[in-house]
């Protein structure tokens, strides 16, 4: 699913550099990424999502060489193939939970909102236990409910890859486990690969594999 070779990346303003000789993640694999802050975990997610481009090397996701794609194609790839879950939920405050679930179809390149998509969103909400809160705005939801809605939003496009950046970072221990179980269960149903950055070592046993950035990253 993900293949990284001889990757180097540095932000234009300097102060940070990433160097990954090789990394591969199989289809359907659930991989946790750990490591000290500032080592480039989130940057790796951005590279894999095509949000930023490697200076050298190759990043291939689901058969797409991201360095070979133009900006519009990378956006289309991101909208159709990748689902995002963020630590701060990143829900849109003026939309209801249901409309937040459908948000990728409102803004994503190459996505079209159809009745089938709405049905899928409804089914996901039921599976994620937030069907009764679909008319509520994010401000009226608990942290756990907001993250469940965010998971629905990440899965509604039926992505091949789910990128989670500290997805359980703002949740209490019980909710963390429930959210991770939910994410893995739904991803498994879809056959999606999960690449999740986390600082929570208690959750690591739940992943198929853990990449420790302290070992992976080499100083540039």
């Amino acid at each position: 699913m993900i293949a990284v070779r001889d990757l180097t990346f540095a932000y234009p303003h300097g102060g940070f550099a990433l160097n990954i000789p090789t990394l591969s993640v199989d289809k359907g694999e659930r991989v946790g990424v750990i490591g000290p802050s500032g080592t480039g975990k989130t940057t790796l997610l951005n590279l894999v999502a095509g949000l930023v481009q490697a200076n050298t090397g190759q990043v291939t996701v689901a058969g797409h060489d991201l360095s070979a794609l133009d900006e519009a194609s990378r956006r289309r790839f991101r909208a159709t193939r990748v689902g995002f879950i963020f630590q701060n939920f990143a829900l849109v405050d003026y939309l209801t939970a249901f409309e937040n679930t459908l948000y990728p179809y409102r803004v994503g390149l190459g996505l079209r909102l159809t009745p089938e998509v709405r049905d899928r969103a409804q089914a996901l909400a039921e599976a994620c236990g937030v069907a009764h809160r679909l008319k509520s705005h994010p401000g009226a939801l608990s942290g756990g409910e907001q993250q469940r809605v965010a998971i629905c939003r990440a899965l509604v496009t039926q992505p091949q890859l789910i990128l989670a950046d500290e997805a359980t970072g703002n949740l209490d221990p019980e909710t963390k486990e429930a959210i991770l179980d939910l994410l893995f269960a739904r991803a498994s149903e879809m056959g999606a690969t999960v690449l999740a950055v986390t600082h929570d070592h208690d959750l690591l046993p739940r992943f198929d594999r853990v990449i420790d950035f302290a070992n992976l990253r080499q100083p540039a």
């Binding site: 999502a49 519009a72 909208a79 159709t80 849109v92 994503g108 390149l109």
Partner: peptide
């Protein structure tokens, strides 16, 4: 700004 950032991540041009 945060909404725009999210939209970009979700594939908005």
């Amino acid at each position: 700004a945060s909404e725009i950032e999210t939209a970009k991540r979700l594939g908005a041009g």
